[in-house]
Every structure is written in structure tokens, then in C-alpha cells.
Amino acid sequence: VLLLAGCSPGGDSVTVYTSQDQVYAEPILQRFEQETGIRVRAIYDSEAVKTVGLVNRLIAEKNHPRCDLFWSNEAFRTHQLAARGVLAADVPIESFGVRTRQWVWNTNLLGRAELPPSLTALTNVQWRGKVVIALPLFGSTATHFQVLRQRWGAAKWQAWCRALSANGVMTVDGNSVVVQLVGRGEVALGLTDSDDVRAGLRNGLPIAGQPLGRDALTIRNTL
């Protein structure tokens, strides 16, 4: 486990902050309770501010921690917390689980062969008003945008961001909303996470997903 600095868990309960989707995290935490007899008080983040909300809360609570374990669904923010001295320095960060950034498209509107060859192609006129992404201030979309900035350099990245906006790329509150809009046919194409694509398929949406190729990003959970 990754304990917060100054936190001394004990007794019959533990407080967990997690940005993992509740639908996935809750059964695991419940099983832990059943197997250990330790009660888990879980605090979840909202879809709209994935991870960032809890990270800001942990920073604010640094000198008076209330959390015993931080389960993040993306490693980037965890390492930010470690760099700021919020996490216990003598406990290693554990990584597990993998999801990827993916295209998601409505199969009634697009074929696989019609997908853009890269993220830079989203600024082409043929995609004007046809693409949706999660607001790139939070969650895995924010992480992905920062990685692209490092790969491409600041000047190219900034020009691309401005061109996306000029081309009418829609921004919404979270990757699951991206999948819903694509599934309803309100837009043809979206950028999301592999777990959200799987959830949409389970719900019977007419969608398909595919990793991004050279613009790909693998995202791990951390404890």
C-alpha cells in the first residue's frame, strides 16, 4: 500500500481515496472487507474532474492527512504527489493494471478504414465538428495531452491545440460521455480510454475502438 506521509493507519478501518471508476473499485474494496474484516471508507472522484479533484484534496490535507491509501487510475498524478512530498517517502509506488487511449467511432457512421492516421489529422477540415474529447484539464485526457507536449515540443503542441479548437472539436465532462455521444451518433469519432469503449460495447452501443498507433498511451493504476 501507498500511505500518506504522517498517516498511521490502524484499528478496524482504512480510508481510501480512489479515482478508479466506482463500478470497478467498489467490488474489490468490498472483497477486501470480507476477507480481512477491515472496514473501508472509500472516497471517489467524479467523472468530470477525474483524479485532479482527489490530488488537490490530498495536497490540501498534506499536513493533516485523512487518507491511508491513494488508488489512482493514472500514474502521472501519483508521481506529482510524490514529488511534492505528499506521499510516504519510504513506501514504493506500486503499478498495476493497464488501459490504453483509443479511437472510438460509431460504426453506423464510420468504417475502420476511414479513421484518421494520427491525432494531428483531427485538425483537417474533413473532421470539422465530427470529433469529441474529454476536457483535457482532467483525467487521462490531461495526461495524454501532457505526454504529447513532451513528444512534439511546446510550439507544435500549442499550434495543434489551437487548431483543434478552430476545427470544432467538442469537449465534454469525461471519457464515458465521449463514448455515449459517439454511440448516439451525435458525433462520429471520439478519443477515450479502452475501459470506456468496453463499457459502451457491454451496453450495446454501435461503436468500435482501436489503439492510436504512434500517438498511443498506456495508462497504469497506482497504489
Results as ranks from 00 to 15, higher is better:
Val16Leu: 00
Thr222Val: 13
Leu87Met: 05
Pro9Gln: 11
Glu26Ala: 14
Arg202Asp: 15
Pro27Arg: 10
Ser140Cys: 05
Ile38Val: 15
Gly11Asn: 04
Ser19Phe: 01
Leu119Ser: 01
Arg151Pro: 08
Pro65Phe: 12
Asp90Glu: 14
Gly213Met: 09
Ser176Trp: 07
Trp105Phe: 14
Leu81Asn: 02
Asn221Gly: 12
Phe32Tyr: 15
Thr120Tyr: 01
Leu87Phe: 03
Gln150Phe: 08
Leu4Gly: 07
Ala208Glu: 15
Val131Glu: 11
Gly53Gln: 05
Phe70Leu: 03
Lys130Cys: 01
Leu87Val: 04
Lys50Asp: 06
Pro206Tyr: 05
Arg202Thr: 11
Gly168Met: 05
Trp71Ala: 06
Val16Trp: 00
Thr51Ser: 15
Thr171Ile: 07
Gly209Phe: 10
Pro116Trp: 10
Thr141Gly: 03
Leu191Asp: 10
Asp90Phe: 04
Arg214Pro: 04
Pro116Gln: 11
Val147Thr: 06
Ala163Cys: 02
Thr123Leu: 02
Gln22Asp: 03
Ile28Ala: 07
Ala48Glu: 13
Leu137Pro: 00
Leu2Gln: 14
Ala154Phe: 01
Leu3Asp: 08
Val55Trp: 01
Lys50Thr: 07
Thr192Leu: 05
Leu54Met: 05
His64Glu: 13
Asp12His: 11
Arg77Ala: 14
Gly111Asn: 11
Arg66Phe: 00
Gly213Arg: 07
Tyr24His: 03
Glu186Arg: 14
Asn124Trp: 10
Pro27Ile: 09
Leu69Glu: 00
Arg214Ala: 15
Asp68Leu: 04
Val49Cys: 03
Val177Met: 08
Asn63Asp: 15
Gln146His: 06
Asp90Cys: 04
